[in-house]
Amino acid sequence: MDVPSHYIQSYCTIRDRSIALNGTTWLKMDSSTTLADFLKSAYRQLDIDYPKFHKMDGLCKAIFIATELMTRDSGPYPSDTALIFSNRSSSYLSDNKHALGIFNTENATASPATFVYTLPNIALGEISIRHQLHSENVFFIFDRYSPEFLVPYTQAALDDKKLANAISGWTEISGHTCDLLLYYIGKSGSVPHTVAQLKRIYNEHE
């Protein structure tokens, strides 16, 4: 078998109301906690001052928290770190809010602050600003978590641009569901960037 060229350096999972970094629980809250309160608690626990966080929608907040945790573990992301993300519901949380506003029969409204978040790749813009990443962004929509597509594509993108690093994964955040796995890929480490490993990591967080 070929020697893998890239490895998982760190990874973060968010399931329901718990967050784990490299498989170790970092925050766990009661399942009755609202998504908004849960994400706010996680932000407080990060103990940083980043006012932009409060303007973000739930998808962006969850991705922001996960990327913040991974950089604490594996160091600053190089500015050419590629961002290759996926989910099922795209930007549903903000789509829903915008659509409710425009079809409100009593007081129809459209707000730019909501509308701007009706694109899933806005989250990639948010973390690019936070970590000063000038890099390629791709946001895929799949029916389900699909390492069978994501891993070979990410490898092709890394090989194409001769890149060492990428952040990749699955970020399904809706009103009821929190199902996120993000991982930071680099040239060294013990967990190879393979479909089998990414299936294992995805399934380890109960």
Partner: peptide, 11 residues
């Protein structure tokens, strides 16, 4: 093909 983010502003 090449693609880069501005890392400056979301809108």
């Amino acid at each position: 093909a090449a693609s880069f983010n501005d890392a400056n502003h979301i809108s």
